[in-house]
C-alpha cells in the first residue's frame, strides 16, 4: 500500500453488474422465440413488419435525441428496439406497412420522448403506439388473416377471442382448442401466434430475474379467479380460465408489457395491486366490454396508477415505526 490517500466516495458503494443495455438485450433475446414463431406462421409479412417497426422506432428516437441535443449513445441501449419489436408483435399481420410506421413513430414520439425519454414515460410506449393505431384505424386493426400454416384460404379469420365474443363459440362448440392456443396455428396478432414460445422467453427472463414474477402471476391469478367464477356457474356459456390465459394478448402482455421496469411499481405490494388490477380489468373487458380483447387498455389503465402505488405501497424501512 504505497498510495496513502483516502478514497472518499458517496454511496452507492455496491453496484449491480446489470446495466440498462444488458437488461434490454436480455429482453430482446427472450422475445426471439416468439418472433421466429410469428415468422413461421405468417412468413414474409411478419419479417417485414418486425423489421420496419424496429427501424422506425430507432429512427424516431434518433430524431428526438437530435432535436433535444442528447447524446446518441442511448440509441444503442436497446430500449427503442424493444418498443419496436413489441409493437410489431401486437399488430395484426394483415396491417399495411404505412400504418405500422405511423404506430412505431407515435409510440416513441408520444409514448416516450415527449415525457423525457427512457425512464420518464408513464405509459408503456409500445402500447401507446398500439392504442394510437387502434383509435385511428379501427377497421384495419381488427382485420385478421389466417396463418400460412393453417392451410385455409380465406381473406379474413376470426381470432379465438372474437370467436368467443361474437359467435357464441362455447354454445356452438366451435371454441378454439387449448392445444392450438398453446402451440400456435391461430389467428391473431403476430406475437399471439403461439403461447409456448412466449413462455420460453418469459422463463429465461424470470430465471435472469429481469422481470418481477409477481406481476405475471398476479395477472393470471386475478384473471382466472374472475373468469373462473363465471365458468363454474355456467360452463355452457363462458370459456374456462385456462382458455382466457392462453388466448389473445394475455401471455405477451403479462410477461413482456406489464413487467416493463419503467411503467410498473417498485415495491412488492405495489406490484401485487397493479397485477391484480390488470387481470381484473382484462376479465371485465373480455366478458362484459365491447371489445373482444382488453389487455392493452387494462395495462395502460393500471400504468396510470403506478406513481400512486409507488407512493402509497412503500415498504417499511428497517427500524421505521409503524404508523399505527
Amino acid at each position: 500500500m504505497t498510495n496513502k490517500t483516502f478514497i472518499l466516495q458517496s454511496s452507492p458503494h455496491f453496484k449491480d453488474k446489470d446495466s440498462v443495455p444488458k437488461i434490454m438485450y436480455a429482453v430482446i433475446f427472450s422475445l426471439m422465440p416468439a418472433a421466429f414463431a410469428s415468422i413461421y406462421f405468417f412468413r414474409l409479412k411478419a419479417v417485414v413488419m418486425l423489421f420496419s417497426c424496429v427501424v422506425v422506432s430507432l429512427a424516431t428516437e434518433a430524431i428526438f435525441l437530435w432535436l433535444r441535443k442528447k447524446p446518441f449513445h442511448s440509441l444503442l441501449d436497446g430500449s427503442s428496439v424493444i418498443t419496436g419489436l413489441i409493437l410489431a408483435m401486437t399488430l395484426p399481420p394483415s396491417l399495411s406497412l404505412e400504418l405500422a410506421v405511423i404506430g412505431a413513430a407515435a409510440a416513441i414520439a408520444i409514448g416516450k420522448q415527449v415525457f423525457g425519454g427512457l425512464g420518464h414515460n408513464i405509459f408503456n410506449p409500445a402500447l401507446v403506439g398500439r392504442a394510437f393505431l387502434q383509435t385511428s384505424f379501427p377497421v384495419a386493426m381488427t382485420t385478421w388473416i389466417p396463418p400460412v400454416t393453417a392451410k385455409i384460404n380465406t381473406a379474413t379469420y376470426a381470432t379465438p377471442l372474437a370467436n368467443l365474443k361474437f359467435e357464441e363459440a362455447v354454445a356452438q362448440g366451435t371454441l378454439t382448442p387449448l392445444k392450438d392456443l398453446f402451440w400456435g396455428n391461430i389467428g391473431g396478432c403476430l406475437g399471439e401466434a403461439s403461447a409456448i414460445t412466449l413462455l420460453i422467453g418469459a422463463l429465461y427472463l424470470l430465471f435472469r430475474r429481469v422481470i418481477d414474477w409477481r406481476i405475471p402471476v398476479g395477472i393470471m391469478v386475478s384473471l382466472s379467479a374472475f373468469t373462473g367464477v363465471f365458468w363454474l356457474i355456467s360452463p355452457e356459456k363462458y370459456a374456462s380460465p385456462l382458455f382466457h390465459i392462453l388466448s389473445g394478448g394475455l401471455m405477451i402482455g403479462a410477461f413482456f408489457m406489464a413487467t416493463d421496469m419503467v411503467t410498473s411499481p417498485i415495491s412488492p405490494l405495489g406490484s401485487w395491486i397493479y397485477a391484480l388490477g390488470i387481470g381484473l380489468i382484462v376479465g371485465l373487458i373480455r366478458l362484459f366490454g365491447g371489445f373482444p380483447e382488453g389487455v392493452m387498455y387494462s395495462i395502460l389503465f393500471m400504468n396510470a396508477f403506478v406513481p400512486l402505488l409507488n407512493r402509497y405501497a412503500r415498504p417499511q424501512i428497517l427500524g421505521e415505526r409503524s404508523k399505527r
Binding site: 400504418l99 408520444i110 383509435t135 385511428s136 384505424f137 379501427p138
Partner: peptide, 17 residues
C-alpha cells in the same frame, strides 16, 4: 388514410400539447 384519433378527444389533447 384518415387518422380518426385526431378528430376524437385524444387528438385534441395530443395536438394542443
Amino acid at each position: 388514410k384518415p387518422w380518426i384519433i385526431m378528430i376524437l378527444p385524444p387528438g385534441a389533447f395530443i395536438t394542443l400539447g
